[in-house]
């Protein structure tokens, strides 16, 4: 994404903040919608649009779990593994998902680039444990380990949105 595109997105937001630095997160989140992660050009575009250095923008981006600085799969599947979900089988679900995608226990992106499987810290759907979020779609749950295959099939069947919010 280039600085003009970022600027166009930020234009209606600018008068909401007294400093352009505050636009970094909105800008980064928007820049990420193009391909689901941020490359160096994206970071530079955000830096230009917000008046900060690229190093600063990268530093901010790297602080947040949901800003991706390396290529990802078309969809990101985040499996909550915090205590409430663990008590209801999130580890088994996660292991099953990784297994089905041929991924190591630490997760990662499937060979065909279709999905990235990652653990997540508490997603705030503990009443629906174990819960799973695809990109920033509404978190779903409970997703039982036995339902993993069906779940993945559904994720893979859905096309990547034109704006990839994560």
């Amino acid at each position: 994404m280039n600085a003009d595109q970022v600027n166009a997105y930020l234009a209606p937001l600018r008068d909401r903040y007294p400093e352009s630095r505050a636009l970094i997160l909105p800008a980064l989140k928007y820049a990420q919608t193009e391909k689901g992660w941020l490359d160096l050009e994206d970071l530079e575009a955000v830096a230009e649009a917000t008046g900060l250095t690229s190093a600063y923008v990268e530093s901010v981006a790297s602080f947040y779990d949901r800003l991706y600085l390396r290529p990802t799969g078309r969809r990101i599947v985040s499996v909550c593994v915090t205590l409430s979900c663990m008590l209801r089988g999130s580890d088994q679900l996660y292991a099953r998902l990784c297994d089905l995608e041929g991924l190591p226990p630490e997760g990662g992106t499937s060979e065909d680039g279709g999905v990235t499987i990652q653990t997540a810290q508490c997603l705030g759907y503990c009443d629906k444990a174990p819960c799973v979020q695809v990109d920033v779609d509404e978190t779903e749950g409970p997703v039982l380990p036995d339902e993993a295959e069906e779940f993945l099939a559904k994720v893979r069947a859905a096309a990547q949105p034109t704006e990839v919010w994560r």
Binding site: L25, P26, T50, Y64
Partner: peptide
Amino acid sequence: DITLHRGAGAYICGEETGLLESLEGKRG
């Protein structure tokens, strides 16, 4: 006025000053 500002995944931004830092465009 009310402005909605979206975070990007960091529990510490629920700490009030971490939140303020993040809202200002800094590391939270």
